[in-house]
């Protein structure tokens, strides 16, 4: 059996408001809020790296779980914004945590990588016992590339999240579904040194159908109606998208934990940052089903069902 032992998060201290971005992008700050639900986001300092933020989130996660770094058997790191082609941030994070020698694997899957890593960790925990999942993104460095796009730049922020998956813990991982389809790979992509390319209409159209479909597939095979899920923890891409997914599942939007207003879209880190905040308050209650869901470049999408121990 695989289980979640804890979450952690790291957010850079610099707050960037819509007003600050609106002035640079020649648009209204209210427009940014209307189209995205985002009021502010965090930007990393120039000397803060993807690996550094990831290590900070990992440390908080291990402290929250009460597990020393020496007990971690494997590290999985998701990032779509790492600073170089190779090596990815995984080995650097392992080194920062004093885990030299522990296998550290990179998953360069923007937005969806954290959920894919959690699902993999659930399987790998049978071999490596404590598997540390980390997602870290420095999106500000990407959206700063010229030409600045008003439809892209305000959406993203920086941050990192972490999750410890183990063979035991207070929240059991029940099942997951993962899907990938390269038909629309060109619609959300980041070429080396280039600005982020996003066909927003295509992304929204596909995500608004594929996320509810994955959640439905997962819940149906586990004989749980969406109404039985106490909290949905979803990739924080856009508040309008989360509201739409809630409507498609016929559940109240308040069941979808949201912190996008404060942090924007932190790509693959967003799911774990949201989970870390939810874990602290209100956190899992005995017997509660919890559903994680994501969608990202590729396209990759999926859902994961967990249940708090009774």
């Amino acid at each position: 059996m695989a289980a979640i032992r804890g979450f952690g998060a790291y957010l850079p201290s610099r707050v960037v408001t819509n007003a600050e971005l609106a002035a640079r992008l020649d648009c209204e700050s209210g427009w940014i809020l209307d189209v995205s639900g985002i009021e502010e986001r965090r930007y990393a300092a120039p000397d803060e790296s993807v690996a550094g933020m990831g290590a900070a989130a990992a440390q908080q996660c291990l402290e929250s779980a009460g597990v020393p770094a020496s007990d971690v058997g494997m590290i999985l790191v998701s990032s779509g914004s790492s600073e170089r082609r190779f090596p990815g941030p995984a080995s650097e994070i392992a080194h920062a945590l004093g885990m030299d020698g522990v296998p550290a694997l990179d998953l360069p899957i923007a937005s969806a990588g954290s959920l894919f890593a959690m699902s993999l960790a659930a399987s790998l925990s049978a071999v490596h016992r404590n598997v540390l999942v980390i997602a870290s993104e420095k999106m500000s460095a990407i959206v700063a590339r010229e030409p600045l796009e008003r439809g892209v730049a305000p959406l993203f922020g920086d941050g990192a999240g972490a999750c410890l998956v183990s063979t035991e813990g207070p929240v059991r991982i029940v099942d997951s579904v993962l899907h990938s389809d390269g038909s629309f790979a060109q619609d959300l992509r980041l070429e080396f040194g280039a600005p982020l390319e996003m066909n927003g209409r295509s992304v929204i159209l596909q995500a608004s159908r594929k996320i509810p479909s994955a959640i439905g597939e997962l819940l149906e095979r586990n004989e749980k109606p969406p109404s039985a899920v106490k909290v949905f923890l979803m990739h924080q891409a856009n508040q309008n998208l989360m509201d739409r997914v809630a409507r498609a599942l016929q559940v109240d939007a308040s069941r979808f934990y949201s912190n996008i207003r404060r942090y924007g879209n932190t790509s693959s880190a967003s799911l774990l940052i949201a989970a870390a905040e939810w874990w602290r308050d209100p956190g899992p209650r005995a017997g509660d089903p919890i559903c994680f869901a994501t969608f990202g470049a590729g396209f990759h999408w999926g859902a994961l069902l967990a249940e708090a121990a009774s």
Binding site: V35, G200, R201, I204, L205, R209, N240, R244
Partner: peptide, 16 residues
Amino acid sequence: LFDSGFLDSFALPDLV
């Protein structure tokens, strides 16, 4: 429909 302002991106799933 989009450039003319009749629909935005989030109306597209409703249209479909």
